[in-house]
Amino acid sequence: MNRVFKIVGFVVAMGVITSSLLIGMDVLTSERISRNEEALLQSKILDAFEIPYNTSNIYDTFVANVEQVDVTIEGTVVPIYRNPDTGSISFEIEGGGVWGPIIGVLTLNEDLVTIENVGILAQQETPGLGGRIVELPYLAKYEGVVFDPFVEVLKEGASAPNQVDAITGATSTSSAFQTILNDSYDQVVPAYQATLGGE
């Protein structure tokens, strides 16, 4: 009996010590991590709008060149970033991938139908297969593709203006990405148009 207590006591003590260490570490780093994430989002949007910047002035360039439109979707406020010179808009897209969430940035042309750029902020897909979704040559295939009626990611033979080739060997990631793109589009763009119309 005594031995059981000893084991339980040890496990509890170990749990308390390690979790408090991790909580402490989280407190120390979380602010920087969220700032880095924000800088990554801003740099992706600046890339998409083709606005030049360097690592030290991301924030200032972003504030000076991009205007933010807040749109309310089902009670939550979603920021939409707009390039006042060209009228193109960027917003965050998010959804489930194969192993974890895929978070990205979708940039649309001023017609709100044509994709100008797709960027990936975070993903946990299989390295070498679905993980290739972060590769710029692959993402470049999405440029010019239209949400008319919706974007379709095909295993092979993408020919119509709304079709894109899937990642070879990563069918699940590709179809998950198709869902993420279309769902986000259907949610954000009508709300954005409604907000503009209401102004």
Binding site: L22, T29, N36
Partner: peptide
């Protein structure tokens, strides 16, 4: 625990 700490450290300082 140590791996998570390393991960947090790198994400914070060397993203």
């Amino acid at each position: 625990a140590f791996v998570i700490m390393v991960q947090m450290f790198l994400e914070a300082y060397f993203p």
